[in-house]
Amino acid sequence: MATELKSGKVHVQATINGEIVDVLAEPRESLLEVLRDHLELTGAKEGCNNGNCGACNVIMDGRLVNSCCVLGVEAAGATIETIEGVASPAGLHPLQDAFLENAALQCGVCTPGFIVAAKALLDENPNPTEYDVRWWLAGNLCRCTGYDKIVRAVLDAAERVRAEA
């Protein structure tokens, strides 16, 4: 049977922050647009819209991705974690605490992307070196902090995550 070409509104079901979500997405809409415009998950930001800045980072099936470079329809059946799912009812994630305590943000536009990207790193490697952190976060741009406080916050959070483990 020939594969159907989809256009107009396409039904997409995905698991987002632990919840099964149904949404109608046009093929031209990015995952970022679907999250922000249809699901009101506006934590992920549109910075460059071409994969350079990382402000739209989400974790898709366990991998860090730029949601501006994924179509919403490609998310069918995927498990997605956004910044809105990082904190728990019990409180902030250690990364969020560490970002606050280390003053690792100023204007805050890049922060959701940095925290999601850093979470993807700590999920994979809870004991990163400074080099690991800088390399992993090279795809996240910040125009305020100069990065140093962000790197310190991630290393601090890694210590907290290891202490909790």
């Binding site: 020939a2 594969t3 070409l5 989809k6 256009s7 093929p27 031209r28 809409e29 990015s30 329809v73």
Partner: peptide, 19 residues
């Protein structure tokens, strides 16, 4: 983005016929 159509074929032959 301009309006596009999206297909998710499961075989090489199907992809070839769409292309």
């Amino acid at each position: 983005m301009r309006a596009i159509q999206y297909a998710a074929p499961t075989t090489v032959d199907d992809a070839v016929s769409i292309l």
